[in-house]
Design a protein around this nucleic acid. Structure first.
Lengths: 242, 242
DNA sequence: AAGTGGTCTAGACCACCGC
DNA sequence: CGGTGGTCTAGACCACTTA
């Protein structure tokens, strides 16, 4: 990417975005380092300042860069780049937190949907559901207790996968399920007697209860998950905008 | 908000943002409805198109509006607005949940920043801080206990505002503080002996602990808030994307 | 054809920062 | 002081939608 092609149907500001992204990816620019100034880009590529500005502002919005009045524009740290709440698997979530994820399957059964699960997944009561109950460990110690309810039609392709080590989402993606979005809720609760042993904390300890409904690309829910996270090991951070 | 004040130090594009936000809040514009065109705003307020455009683009980025090429710009549905977790005041949050917010001020003092507050706000220890401790009620019943630490330099303009009924953010916005983003974390915990009376639940009840650092448009933190929400009345929902 | 948003120009003045 | 980003102007041509 040597320069900007004026003849191209691709907008100039977009070409500049790609150029800057490339520079960062190739580590010509490192985290914390200043990128060339707006006026510098104008001269170098023969574009107007507003155009250079649009490219830079969009990258700032995406979290790749940050600006400081009077000083310059800088490459953001990786952790700042992941600001927005992303839909990730437990495996990826733990990796981001610098821990190693593993799992132990407690139960795995095909059963008819009960009233709650049927409502959450928008299917008739009695529809076949794969229920999967797992202890999720981080660095070998219990982090959460998780119960997934998957549409059997979707999940049957992953029945024989090794769910102890691998990621369910990884398996689903290989099976052609494209995840579009999820609705997730956070609530505080207490660890029950039944859960205490699996989580390795006393009953009555605080716990973060997370519920999630995951939708495929046709906006159909295919998974309903309830998790109990140990409050002493887990917190959620997000960035909010006005 | 009748028009745009050319003499004001507040940028024109930001004044226009406020005007559009107001129109939506007062339901002069409803979800799915088109807002005036860019050129219409230019004429109405005597500003250039790029300025009107900047205001609109930022509101699109924030999820309040969406644009369709050749058709116009429209007000987003509420549920779409909340897709990316939005930064709202307690007052607005309760309104969205169909409840009426009110507050009781427990403490309000100017004091030097301690080590934790100083670190969270990125200032020197001893910097003057306005500490505001409030019970936040929803429909007249306790919902949360909230302690705000505000930079005194920023907060002094709102000292005499009626914080019992009004929104702190509303007051800050009137005072010219422009909120850019916030970092918020969720954690589970238990209600302490000291908090139990204020919240109207027994000590040891589950509680959602929310911490927030709010940044102005220069990326300077000006507020650090710790809140304890009753788990039986409050849960947080967000939409995640892959 | 008229109106919308999408892109772009070539300037301008300002506030802030570091030297 | 010179350089940076922040704001703003008054135009321009384009692609797209709707009528």
């Amino acid at each position: 990417m040597a320069g900007i092609d004026t003849e191209s149907p691709v907008p100039k500001y977009y070409q500049l975005k790609e150029i800057i992204r490339d520079m960062i990816e190739k580590e010509e620019l490192r985290a914390g380092q200043a990128i060339p100034s707006e006026r510098e880009f104008c001269e170098r590529y023969g574009i107007s300042r507003m155009t250079a500005r649009q490219a830079i502002m969009e990258l700032v919005n995406e979290g790749l860069l940050y600006r400081e009045q009077g000083r310059g524009t800088f490459v953001a740290e990786k952790k700042l780049q992941q600001e927005a709440a992303r839909l990730t698997s437990f495996t990826q979530d733990m990796r981001d937190r610098g821990m190693r994820a593993s799992s132990r399957v407690l139960e795995m059964e095909v059963e008819p949907a009960g009233p709650v699960v049927a409502r959450m997944l928008g299917v008739d009561r009695g529809t076949r559901i794969l229920r999967l109950r797992r202890v999720r460990d981080a660095d070998g110690e219990p982090m959460a207790l998780e119960t997934s309810h998957l549409l059997y039609e979707v999940a049957k392709g992953v029945l024989d996968a090794d769910l102890a080590s691998g990621s369910l989402y990884e398996e689903l993606r290989k099976a052609g399920v494209r995840i579009a979005r999820a609705e997730q809720s956070y609530e505080a609760g207490l660890v029950s007697e039944a859960e205490a042993g699996h989580l390795g904390v006393p009953a009555g300890s605080p716990a973060l209860l997370i519920e999630r409904i995951t939708f495929d690309e046709n906006d159909r829910p295919f998974e309903y998950v309830k998790s109990t996270y140990r409050a002493d090991r887990y917190r959620v951070t997000t960035v909010l905008h006005p």
